[in-house]
């Protein structure tokens, strides 16, 4: 493997390790902490994993601001759909 590629692969390797680590935390939570408040750390970890993929693996950090804006808008619209739909179901 050429050295310049080795150099470039540091970030992907780190990303992979971080993701696998977060996944195993989530799995442990899923096995040993059933019910209760486990969903809060589980959701937080999931959000961290999503952000890691989005920003590092998909390189949103190095994209022009416009691209980041579009990714952001995508999630904003998901939250509109989520909030307003749940507003109905939680107040029935």
């Amino acid at each position: 493997m050429p050295p310049e590629l080795k150099q470039k692969l540091r970030t992907p390797i780190a990303t992979m390790l971080v993701l696998l680590g977060l996944l195993s935390v989530n799995v442990i939570l899923g096995i040993y902490f059933i019910h209760g408040w486990a969903w809060i750390p589980e959701v937080l970890i999931t959000v961290t994993m999503i952000l890691t993929v989005l920003l590092v693996a998909m390189e949103a950090l190095h994209e022009p601001p416009l691209t980041r804006l579009f990714a952001f808008i995508g999630f904003c619209w998901v939250s509109i759909l989520l909030t307003l739909t749940m507003m109905d179901y939680l107040t029935r």
Binding site: E63, L66, T67, F70, A71, I73, G74, F75, W77, V78, L81, L82, T85, M86, Y89, L90
Partner: peptide, 28 residues
């Protein structure tokens, strides 16, 4: 790249329709 990111935003919304259904079913 912008085209692909825009397309992925549509994919995200496609799947989110199902995630929200899951949440609603869970609430009910």
């Amino acid at each position: 790249k912008l085209g692909m990111w825009t397309f992925l935003a549509t994919e995200l919304l496609l799947f989110s329709g199902m995630f929200i259904s899951a949440l609603v079913i869970r609430t009910l």
